[in-house]
């Protein structure tokens, strides 16, 4: 048996060779590009280390872009989760006809992928200045949305548009989780004297919490990185981070090329933070899982 250890040592790297193509791809097209940005954020134009790029982010315009982006992602993720949850719960528990469920799931699959440029067109045609709903409200009811302060090209307009892909994504993810709630839990809670609200608060929601949290983090990142919808809706002037970065990449509007790195680095930090927060909360809330 003296040769055994040598053979072992030789076999290990050979087995790892099987995933080498995938690893090369991941390094070249996922990890290195990200590293390039992270490193670039700490470099001057001639390659020496600096914190100046990050300090330069601290302007009114960039601060407000981050703030708007954070707000937009948070609000659409929250509303997307809440409304998607309500619709999924209505279909799974609410006593709606069984025939409703499959069409809803199929439609959610379509709608969650119907993001970007065409989605913006659909909302312009509906809630834009001469859109279907805008005109209908004005001619039939004399309600002038614009005079009431509503503008599709504003924060709340963006929220309403983003929800078109956020809600279906939530529905797609949460329906299987709701199916995972066992009937015995609800019935056990009931015979033990719990009201419906007590069952949801003490049993169902704590069990669903990790899924809800994960979906929230996903929706947040989804909204935070979205460029096409906002760009097609409002053009390059809307002050959110992805649009600012888009404009920067296209024409170096910030003057300093390395400021672009810092801007992108900020985006990575925020989505990474959101996900770390998610993982941390999940580990804390899932002590009862294997």
């Amino acid at each position: 048996m003296p040769k055994q250890p040598g053979g072992q040592r030789l076999r290990l790297p050979l087995e790892w060779l099987g995933i080498l193509p995938f690893m090369i791809f991941a390094v070249l097209f996922l990890i290195l590009p990200t590293m390039k940005i992270v490193i670039g954020a700490f470099q001057t134009a001639d390659g020496s280390f600096t914190l100046q790029n990050l300090i330069d982010l601290n302007t009114d315009s960039i601060r407000s872009a981050y703030w708007t982006s954070l707000k937009l992602s948070f609000v659409t993720a929250l509303l997307g989760c809440a409304i998607g949850f309500a619709m999924a719960a209505a279909v799974v528990f609410g006593g709606l006809p069984k025939g409703v469920r499959n069409p809803l799931v199929t439609f959610s699959g379509v709608a969650s992928n119907f993001a970007g440029v065409p989605l913006a067109f659909a909302f312009i045609a509906t809630l834009g200045p001469v859109g279907l709903v805008t005109v209908w409200l004005r001619t039939e009811f004399g309600i002038n949305l614009r005079a009431m302060g509503f503008n599709l090209l504003s924060f709340w307009g963006l929220v309403i548009t983003y929800l078109f892909f956020q809600i279906p994504l939530m529905i797609l993810i949460i329906i299987p989780a709701l199916d995972g709630l066992k009937r015995e839990w609800r019935e056990a809670a009931a015979v033990l004297g719990a009201t419906g609200a007590q069952y949801w608060r003490m049993v169902a929601l704590p069990i669903l919490f990790p899924s809800l949290l994960g979906t929230f983090a996903l929706l947040f990142a989804n909204a935070f990185g979205a460029v096409a919808t906002a760009f097609a809706l409002t053009g390059p002037q809307l002050n959110i981070v992805p649009i600012k970065l888009f404009a920067q990449i296209r024409g170096d509007v910030l003057g300093n090329p390395n400021l672009g790195y810092a801007l992108a680095f900020g985006m990575i930090v925020i989505t990474a933070l959101a996900n770390f927060l998610y993982i941390w909360l999940r580990v804390r809330s899932e002590r009862w899982l294997k």
């Binding site: 996922l30 888009f246 990449i249």
Partner: peptide, 18 residues
């Protein structure tokens, strides 16, 4: 799962510079 976390615009920005 990384592509769900790192926005596409950041990845493509990396491509352009790399």
């Amino acid at each position: 799962l990384l592509p769900l976390v790192i926005p596409a615009i950041v990845i493509v920005f990396g491509y352009i510079r790399l």
